[in-house]
Every structure is written in C-alpha cells, then in structure tokens.
C-alpha cells in the first residue's frame, strides 16, 4: 500500500515518508533502550566479569580463562550440569501430560468449568507453596508419601535426603504446575481444531490414536510449540523449588546451574563473582542453543506467508 501511494507524490511529501520511516522506531525506542540496557548490556558485562576474580568489594583481578578451567575440574559444577540435563528431559513430560488432561477435559459435561479450574489450580499458586506442599508430602517422618508406600508394604524413603532421588523428587514437584500450564495451552488449542476436518477424518474411518496423531496433533502445532518453549525455559530456570525444598542439598546433589551460580556469587558463603559469572555464561550458552532453535523455527513459520 505504501509503495503504491508513494510514486504519486514522491517529492512533495517527504515529511510523510520520513514519518513513516521514523515512527516505528520511535515507538520501539523505549522498549529497545530498556532491552539494551537491562538485558543485552548485562549479558556482555557477565561475559567480561567471568574473566576476573572479584569478591564484589575490592578491585577485580584479571585471570583470563582460569574460572572456566576451574569449572572443568569442579565436581559440584558437573553435578549441577547433569541435573540440568535431567530437568530438561524430564520436564518435557509436562507436554504429553498436559495434552492428555486437556483431551480428557475437552468435553461438555455438567460442571466441566469447575474441573478445568481445579486442574489449572497448581499453576496459579506460588512455586514456594508448591515446594512446601511437596516437602511435607515427602517428609520422612510424617509425610503422606511414606504412609502411602506403607500401604503397599514398601519401606520408608527419604526422597529429599537421598542424593540419588532428590532431583527426581523436585522435578515431580515442578511437573505438577507445569502440566497444568501445558493443559491450558492445549485446551485453548483444542478450541481452534476444525470440526469439519475431524468429521471428514471420521468418515474416512480414523479414530483413536490415528485420529489423534494424524488429525488433531498437526492442528495443535502452534500450541505444542509454545508448550515446548515455556517448558524448556521453565526447566532451565528452575530455582525456586530447589531453594525451597532442599537448598541445593543434601551436600549439593540437587543443585542446577542457576542455583550453583547463585550460591557461588550471591549467597552467604559465596561472593566469587567471576566464578558465578562463568557459570552464568555456560548456562547462557545452553539456553542459546534453544533460543536459536526457537527463533529459527518462528522465522521459518512466518516466511512462507
């Protein structure tokens, strides 16, 4: 439209052309400025800081890549990294979980709104509350979990005190609200499923899994994409549950990179700013892989138009 209008009066209305070129930038400027100042600039600042040894008080001392070399031999870092991988993989269970609850709830029965809100409830309450509820559930002396295990004759276990189980225990707690989130994404997605296509598929004899896989799921692709994005991001920034439920323990077995970074840089015994920044850079690089993928696939989706 703009191109069509311009040739008619290219020289007489330069101001309008300028306005059209500048206006979007003007509107974007506040957002861009804040983004540059509060996101981009700190990112490079942490890159820089990770090359220094600094306790947050004195003068930083340049140490080159020493912080990264130390990370290589730091077993606590290795444990945190592995735990992050566990979080990334297992947290994705929220997507099929949310999908099946959504399919189950996507029917018109009396009071379905109430059931939907009950299933959505865990996402509404604070992560801190989720953490506390699950800590009590897992509690080795009075927790419900051990009572329930007792019914089937299984011995008491201390999920949050066992270095082998603790991360899985916390991930389960995290899956509770995350599944609810994915469920709501799929419920809205299901509203947009074309009933005619479903009808046509039914005429062709598709039902059950085949219907789900070949007809419903392709139409849910946008919802799946968003669910994937929020779940990956949620897994990488898992922090509050760990802090509430175990404080990284027992002896550091439930730490993830973000928690380890916090401990090293900002907690009571920390203040190795450079080392913390190096951990943050590693976390950033892991995130970058996913961010690049997300951006690329969004770009690809928008181009064919």
């Amino acid at each position: 439209m703009t191109n069509a209008a311009l040739p008619t009066a290219p020289d007489t209305r330069p101001r309008r052309r300028n306005a059209q070129a500048i206006a979007p930038w003007l509107f974007l400027a506040p957002g861009l400025l804040f983004f540059l100042f509060y996101v981009i600039f700190p990112v490079f600042q942490s890159f820089n800081l990770s090359l220094y040894k600094w306790d947050g008080l004195g003068t930083p001392e340049f140490v080159g890549l020493k912080n990264y070399r130390d990370l290589g031999s730091d077993r606590a870092f290795e444990v945190s990294l592995w735990n992050n991988v566990k979080w990334l993989v297992l947290y994705l269970l929220a997507i099929p979980g949310g999908l099946f609850i959504a399919l189950f709830l996507n029917q018109t029965v009396r009071g379905i709104r109430l059931y939907k809100s009950l299933f959505f409830f865990p996402f509404v309450i604070s992560q801190v509350v989720v953490g506390l509820v699950f800590s009590w559930f897992y509690d080795p002396t009075f927790g419900l979990l051990n009572v329930m295990l007792g019914w089937v004759g299984l011995g008491p276990i201390n999920v949050l005190g066992d270095p082998a189980l603790v991360t899985y225990g916390i991930i389960v707690a995290g899956l509770w609200p995350q599944t609810a989130y994915c469920m709501i994404l799929y419920l809205t997605g299901l509203n947009a499923v074309d009933p005619e296509q479903v009808e046509a598929a039914r005429l062709d004899g598709a039902k059950g899994w085949r219907m789900l896989w070949y007809v419903i799921l392709p139409q849910l692709r946008p919802a799946t994409f968003i669910a994937f994005v929020v779940t990956i991001i949620g897994a990488l920034r898992s922090f509050d549950l760990i802090s509430i439920m175990t404080n990284g323990g027992p002896f550091g077995s439930s730490r993830v990179l973000s928690f380890y970074m916090f401990e090293k840089a900002l907690s009571e015994y920390g203040f190795r700013m450079g080392y913390g920044a190096a951990i943050a850079v590693v976390l950033f690089l892991i995130m970058l892989v996913f961010i690049a993928y997300f951006l690329w696939s969004m770009y690809r989706q928008e181009r064919p138009r």
Binding site: G161, P163, G249, P250, F251, G252, E263, E268, Y269, G270, F271, R272
Partner: peptide, 22 residues
C-alpha cells in the same frame, strides 16, 4: 564458619553433611 574463610567453610560443611550421611 567464622574461623574459616567463607569459601572453605561452605565446602567443608557440605563435606561434613555428606560424611554424616555416607
């Protein structure tokens, strides 16, 4: 944790807990 430097205290106390468990 007041006699030892903070970083040593953090590492050592984690070790003490690990020792008490395993």
């Amino acid at each position: 944790d007041r006699d030892a430097p903070a970083e040593m205290a953090a590492a050592a106390m984690e070790g003490f807990q690990e020792f008490m468990v395993i």
